[in-house]
Design a protein around this nucleic acid. Sequence first.
DNA 1: TTGTAAGCGTTATCAC
DNA 2: GTGATAACGCTTACAA
Lengths: 329, 329
Amino acid sequence: MTANIHDVAAAAGVSIATVSRVYNGQRVSPDRAARVREAAKQLDFSPNRAARSLRRKHSEVIALIVPDIENPYFTAMARGVEDSAQRAGYSVVLGNTDDEEAKESQYLRIAVSENMAGVIVVPNRATDDLLSYVASGRPAVAIDRQLDLGVDEVLVDNVAAGRLATGALLDAGFERVGLVTGPPGLSSANDRVIGWRAAHGERGLEVDETLVEHGDFRVAGAREAMRALLGTGAAIDAVVAGNNLTGIGAFQVLARAGTVPPDFGFAIIGDLPFTTMVSADIVRIDLPARQVGIRAADMLIDRITGHDGGPRSLTLPPEVLAADHDWTV
Amino acid sequence: MTANIHDVAAAAGVSIATVSRVYNGQRVSPDRAARVREAAKQLDFSPNRAARSLRRKHSEVIALIVPDIENPYFTAMARGVEDSAQRAGYSVVLGNTDDEEAKESQYLRIAVSENMAGVIVVPNRATDDLLSYVASGRPAVAIDRQLDLGVDEVLVDNVAAGRLATGALLDAGFERVGLVTGPPGLSSANDRVIGWRAAHGERGLEVDETLVEHGDFRVAGAREAMRALLGTGAAIDAVVAGNNLTGIGAFQVLARAGTVPPDFGFAIIGDLPFTTMVSADIVRIDLPARQVGIRAADMLIDRITGHDGGPRSLTLPPEVLAADHDWTV
DNA sequence: TTGTAAGCGTTATCAC
DNA sequence: GTGATAACGCTTACAA
């Protein structure tokens, strides 16, 4: 059905080795090369990747393993990865883990058995399967969460994000700034707490740890955490939402309670990409999600193509969005 | 490095054929099967998919080709596809086309040369590459847009969606209901116009075609279209946003102009998954995006596993969300 | 039920 | 430069 290398060789009157060489940028005499290309076009031939990958021991596809493909934050990363990868001739397979070990492991296994060139993963914790994948020496880049896996990593500066968000609220005159962050197991969640503390410290303020609530970085958990925070009698007059979905859940609760900006301080770490209006009274810390994806893919491809050396770590800075920032889209 | 079928066969004291049979559910005596499994576990063996796919002429991965992976509507579909696929033992590769022919073609080629089992595609138009992929007889399912490609398709009833959205506004007492839809080339965009007309017709109302504006189904285009619609002096008192992103762009413009619900009628076809508040005054027509993905994957797998017969077409109904619908998340 | 052996479509190692 | 030819790791007749 589909033409193979033999058909092309026959049509061009050369050996299959020559055809292969044409497709691998090796030296072939101009006229033979031309004949091969002509025949290939005629037959609509393109090299079978399964065979190539079997022989070469790796394919031109990379796996991107994320916790939630419906979260725009990760989608933006995916977009970045895809942009970089495509430019370099790689395609991207997306795997969704829901932060479940079993699913992550499955995708890792698939990556191996499909001879994928490498893996970019948002890790949850250092599982055996993750460790053994890394130990096998296959190219891997961890993103978004710090885990000391001994591989290249691309992170965002979450301490800075927490510090900036909290600082902006403090500087605006709010005095009891709460924080709804994510699961204690995630560096991203913890670092934002550290930043929250730092913002207080820098201003010579005492911190009240009861103002920190751990959600699950998702909407429902954020609602719960926000309600809890309002209910403790902690008497907060502002809150920092630890990530985008937390921002949504927290804001929903606040809106219900009627405690909204500008009277109540609200900051969000992350983007609300599909919101219709952004009040200037909301502090927004922009996270470079797409950049993370781009840089991670670049790093991975760098490894795939032979870069050696110890693990590299890259941390990208967040950015405070100007108050007069218009629309988020 | 990684164990292969020979290693396992040697360790278990059987032939490679026996090992293969164990992994393909063929009859093997219980004790030998047990020995194989034991050896496989010991050696951390899992069959090399590249080799398998080379031999079998198809792999266990399916491609999902969408215009915009950052649009939650398509992400929801992706999620549905993944759910179904994973259940059946397939993994999903995601390709992003930006509605560009070249990118779509590239992903189609990759699908072929990677021996992928099948393709689920949101087609833009009937390009040569798409047609020839289909003509090759490889399993394919088209979703979301009607195109008469002669393959299985899963659609949503966009006429109904347009009719319901427009009807709700009309029934609420609005008299000049505009529509911002998508590019004229897309069935989804056109069908919603047809529905808009039908809603008028059913109520014995004349339609004024100047109230229909074509955007690009994205935020920026929707803003422009909305501005145009407000500027024509068409004097609309309500508008239907043709898709989710259009809803955002249109609403942004309306909010700026101060023409908002409940005085101004607003309906949106699609979901606003990450909005913080949904006013009861906004009419929302829910599109079964995830279901589309699920059914498409089921259909595709059905084909992959041998189902024969003419192309099937499945159209899923939209749903009007109750006005007291709480939060969208 | 089991084993042997012939491919699947490439790339890589040889000689020439 | 070029062409045979041997892998790569698996599935599947065909025999036993």
